[in-house]
Design a protein around this nucleic acid. Structure first.
Lengths: 130, 130
DNA sequence: ACAAGTCACTTGCAAAATGCAAGTTAAAAC
DNA sequence: GTTTTAACTTGCATTTTGCAAGTGACTTGT
């Protein structure tokens, strides 16, 4: 279900970088092709991990949001980031230290940033500051 | 690095089912092809996640073991199993309840089962009992 | 001692997934 | 009302995956 090259990276970009439009996912430095991205977004939606909404202030844009099922992947992503920080050369050591020092607080932060989705209001903006 | 269909499943089988030979990985119900399995095992070894040893009691067999880097993936796998248990129909609810009730104890269990690797003695045997 | 397994692969080929470049469509912006 | 922008789709080449059938070293059974 998440066993491909891109799905978890897309979710990571939503959680950690606050990405929620097609273009923002494309910009994320790994360079996914547009057809693959479109396909993965549809799959993630079919799995109930993300949902889609039109941007009320710009009819061209779609806003991708994590569902509660998607938000529940935060601990998985957090552990992956910690593991990579421990064993691979990685930038963003600040984020990793933040997560090490208070994992619960970090997870709460993600949940709060995305919790609004349930009430159907606007998506959270911005990236997490290390 | 782990962004493919099989790598994390192989690691899961090592951690949760105690698999450590080529044949045991093949038996694991998902049905990986032999050429892909051989390729993934080599990649995981190249990444330093597993290591390989000859079985001293049977020269045909190779024993695959998790390195400390591989053991450190236990929290990632644990969170994945918990997530799947929460959101997907899954068997092995006993294991999931065990993990929910005491995640730390569960992780300690995995670490102890595999810690012997550092001292170059025999690999741990058997699966985790829910 | 020797034939018949077993184990851990490799090889060849077909099928599927991925990647790349160039559209397309609807909605802003100028 | 022409040009941009956002979110895709399409066609085709390349890469990865999967399947079936070997292969070679080692062990088992007689």
């Amino acid at each position: 279900m998440l066993g491909d090259r891109w799905s978890l990276l897309i979710i990571r970009d939503m959680m950690l970088l606050g990405a929620h439009t097609f273009k923002e996912f494309l910009g994320s430095y790994e360079g996914i092709a547009t057809n693959i991205l479109a396909n993965r977004l549809r799959r993630l939606e079919a799995y109930g991990i993300i949902r889609t909404e039109r941007d009320p202030s710009d009819g061209r844009k779609l806003i991708y949001q994590l569902t509660s099922k998607g938000i529940d992947l935060a601990p998985v992503l957090a552990e992956m980031v910690l593991w990579a920080g421990r064993h691979e050369k990685t930038k963003n050591q600040a984020l990793i230290r933040l997560m090490q020092n208070d994992k619960q607080l970090f997870l709460e932060g993600i949940r709060q940033r995305w919790a609004q989705n349930k009430t159907h209001s606007a998506a959270p903006r911005g990236r997490i500051r290390g």
